[in-house]
């Protein structure tokens, strides 16, 4: 930023020669994809469980528990998870970060899936049963396809939550393992560096891409079928 002398790709080249940084980028992506995937599965199961409670107040009580991690400040989540992992004897590193990311992504998946589930008319399930569907058929042929826009949205939210997270990761990451956010923080504490500038640009572009993909997906699922009109 200072001593601007012209455009160069020098910093990007340096970035990609830096194998340590490359590993961190890979770590970040693997954590994000894995945690989003697992959180989506558990979150969908959770949403279905909550949806199974027919009484409004038991649903609300479960949702309140569900939302605790969403409204809790990151520092508290980070600190309490640090205690948890230490007590459980889980070594800080890849697994502790992965578990934390799964844990704080589950409630957001539930929140994305549950409205779709509740909006579904219960007669659809009756109709499927009536047509001979077993409970497994009802789940795979009716419920899951119906709530799939919510599942996709939940997965993407979980992905962005994981990519964005700094505070929780910072607490549970230990020494040997790092993600991009944590790396930027430790570099930034030492001051401005052009290396981070290049890194930031990459992250920025990835974010923008995610936003575009997300809106494309929700847009498509929202207007699905219009293209097939004959």
């Amino acid at each position: 930023m200072n001593n601007f002398e012209g455009f160069t790709l020098e910093w990007y080249r340096e970035l990609f020669h830096d194998t340590r940084l490359l590993i961190i980028v890979l770590n970040t992506l693997v954590i994000a994809l894995l945690s989003a995937l697992i959180a989506t599965i558990i979150g969908v199961l959770g949403a279905i469980s909550i949806g199974n409670y027919k009484k409004r107040h038991s649903q609300n009580a479960l949702l309140a528990v569900n939302n605790v991690l969403i409204v809790s400040p990151d520092v508290i989540i980070g600190a309490s998870f640090l205690i948890l992992f230490t007590m459980a004897g889980i070594q800080l590193g890849f697994y502790s970060v992965l578990l934390s990311h799964i844990a704080f992504s589950i409630p957001i998946v539930v929140l994305m899936v549950l409205p779709k589930l509740l909006e579904m008319s219960p007669t659809l399930i009756d109709a499927a049963r009536d047509l001979g569907a077993s409970r497994w058929d009802v789940l795979t042929k009716v419920i899951l396809p119906y709530i799939s826009p919510g599942i996709v949205a939940g997965f993407f939210m979980a992905l962005t939550y994981s990519l964005d997270d700094f505070a929780v990761t910072f607490f549970v990451t230990g020494n040997g393992f790092s993600t991009l956010s944590v790396e930027i923080y430790s570099l930034a504490r030492r001051g401005i560096s052009l290396n981070i500038n290049a890194l930031s640009t990459i992250m920025f572009l990835v974010t923008i891409m995610m936003v575009i993909i997300y809106y494309y997906l929700t847009q498509r699922s929202g207007t699905k079928g219009v293209g097939f009109r004959r």
Binding site: I41, I42, G43, L45, G46, I48, S49, N52, V65, N66, V68, L69, I76, I77, A79, S80, F81, I83, L84, M87, A103, I106, V110, R135
Partner: peptide, 25 residues
């Protein structure tokens, strides 16, 4: 039975990552 099986992973999450961290703190 199937409803309870569905509940297990989510319930585990509530116990392990919502309730117990608060209690530990």
């Amino acid at each position: 039975l199937s409803r309870n099986l569905f509940m297990i992973p989510y319930a585990l999450w509530i116990i392990l990552f919502v309730v117990s961290p608060i209690l530990l703190v």
